[in-house]
Design a protein around this nucleic acid. Structure first.
Length: 485
RNA sequence: CGGGGCGUAGCGCAGCCCGGUUAGCGCGCCUGCUUUGGGAGCAGGAGGUCCCCGGUUCAAAUCCGGGCGCCCCGACCA
């Protein structure tokens, strides 16, 4: 159980650090299935807390959960041209069942637009049936060439929202509503502040008219696409005959949106806050917010009794606590283990503390120059823990925002300058763009960076760029470049 | 799919080039005792299809052929 090796430092090899920390913090492990991982209880607990928070936000805004089949008829996927082109290379297909060849193969869903809109077509006749606002929590399979724990796995867990509306304006509004929810969730729960904006034509979802996205900057200065919200127009409704009769009696195709975030967010959390000691889990997501370690030296019964008392009092205050009373590990070994897993606070209780009516309270991270561990009067330590957890939560967000800003370069006007900025460690680089795909390709070829998004208004530079970074043509939009996961 | 690396006890590795006893080491695990405020100590013990299939040989972890999987770089990819 004890694991006394140090992690590969982030600065030495970030990718190796990531693989080690995910496994050794017991977030996930490799499985016998190629490219598929097992999400272990610690990682799954974090995902469950993400789910709970997001689910509540979806429901507050009028969405309901439903569930659609895992298997989708091949012909459904093939109906929308760009959709099938986008997903064909990574489909897993079922051709046999019940010992017989199937008449029509089934695809294991890579995403569910097709089967969901085919059902909406049955349920919607009138504008009075709109909007339809459904979400499903599900697993999907995409046969990726190269997989990485949480970031890109062949099978992953996600939520996918699918809505149908009577007007384009309403659908667009929905797309942006969800983008806002994603952003709020990432900031307030993960402490991972994303840039939000629009995808370029080449990066948008296969089958969408427009894709909005959340792009977060990881500690190695690579961008992670953390969530997307798509305006699908009538692309799918036309293929699946999703029509309704309008108030004026006209037959019209519905307007759709789809949006999703996945277990990739757990990887984003790791790469946003983790350090050389391990993962750091934001308090709101932590399955255990405070671990209590009893220091046993002879007077065990008294210490264990006090430990249980403190645990009960913290639980009453709404703190998720765990008592680690294992007797085969030294306290130090437990500290390292819980720090690697990223528990925000640790409480130590020993005979000396009982004598003095105090507790030792240690933070997973402390602000510059502050000690991580403090001895506090028992009542104070317990009573202030909820607010300390909230403070910890906001400090994580503040640190992540500061890191993003420190690694952002604006006003870049040439590809040379862009390339130089990226090579000297910049994360997000802002430039002008003439809207041509050829520029994206040329820059990608040279720098490995892609347009992560056309940033939303509040992220744009005070002065809009006038010329394209390529040097040819006026800028039609400011864009953000980064090397991405 | 191209290039590179790797696969030997739960984990990390040595042994392989140059075939030859019961296949080793560290950590972990089990039992006991002593410990416990930053990765405990001693003693005893358990644990192996040497990734898989085939070939060469009196004899294969080791040599040869094929396959599978993992990691890194690239290509590909919401």
């Amino acid at each position: 159980m004890a694991d006394d090796r140090k992690l590969t430092p982030q600065g030495e090899d970030f990718a190796t650090w990531y693989n080690e920390v995910v496994q050794r913090a017991e977030l996930a492990d490799y499985s016998p299935v190629r490219g598929s991982m097992v999400i272990r209880p610690w990682g799954y607990g974090i995902w469950e807390n993400m789910q709970r928070a997001l689910d509540a936000m979806f429901k507050e805004t009028g969405h309901e959960n439903a569930y659609f089949p895992l298997l989708i008829p091949m012909s459904f996927i093939e109906k929308e041209k760009e959709h099938v082109e986008g997903f064909a290379p990574e489909l897993a297909v079922v051709t046999q069942a019940g010992g017989k060849e199937l008449e029509e193969p089934y695809v294991i869903r890579p995403t569910s637009e097709t089967i969901i809109y085919s059902m909406y077509a049955k349920w919607v006749q009138s504008y009075r049936d709109l909007p339809v606002l459904l979400n499903q929590w599900a697993n999907v399979v995409r046969w990726e060439m190269r997989t990485r724990l949480f970031l890109r796995t062949a099978e992953f867990l996600w939520q996918e929202g699918h809505t149908a509306h009577a007007t384009a304006e309403e659908a667009e509004e929905e797309t942006l509503l969800i983008l806002g929810i994603y952003r709020k969730f990432m900031e307030e729960w993960i402490g991972m502040p994303p840039l939000t904006g629009l995808k370029s034509e080449s990066e948008k979802f296969a089958g969408a008219v427009r894709s909005y996205c959340c792009e977060a900057l990881m500690k190695d200065n690579k961008a992670l696409q953390a969530g997307t919200s798509h305006f699908l127009g009538q692309n799918f409704s036309r293929q699946f005959d999703l029509k309704f009769q309008s108030e004026e009696g006209q037959e019209e195709y519905a307007w759709n949106t789809s949006w999703g975030v996945s277990t990739r967010l757990v990887g984003g959390m790791v790469m946003t806050h983790g350090d050389d000691q391990g993962v750091v889990v934001p308090p709101r997501l932590a399955p255990v917010q405070a671990v209590i370690v009893p220091i046993l030296k002879g007077d065990d019964a008294a210490v264990l009794e006090k430990t249980d008392q403190v645990a009960a009092r913290l639980k009453d205050l709404g703190v998720r606590v765990k008592v680690d009373a294992r007797d085969n590990l030294n306290p130090g070994a437990k500290y390292y283990e819980w720090e690697r897993k990223g528990v925000p606070f640790r409480v130590e209780i020993g005979p000396k503390d009982i004598e003095k009516g105090q507790l030792a309270l240690a933070r997973r991270l402390a602000p510059e120059g502050e000690k991580r561990k403090a001895f506090l009067p028992e009542d104070e330590a317990i009573g202030t823990l909820p607010e300390r957890l909230e403070a910890f939560q906001s400090e994580l967000l503040e640190a992540a925002v500061a890191r993003r800003e420190a690694n952002t370069v604006r006003g870049v006007t040439s590809v040379d300058e862009l390339s130089e900025a990226l090579d000297s460690g910049a994360g997000f680089v802002y430039t002008g763009w003439n809207g041509e795909e050829a520029v994206e390709e040329a820059v990608k070829e040279r720098t490995k960076a892609t347009i992560r998004c056309l940033p939303g208004e509040e992220f744009r530079s005070p002065e809009a760029p006038t010329r394209c970074v390529s040097g040819s043509g006026d800028s039609v939009a400011e864009v953000v470049w980064a090397r991405a996961y």
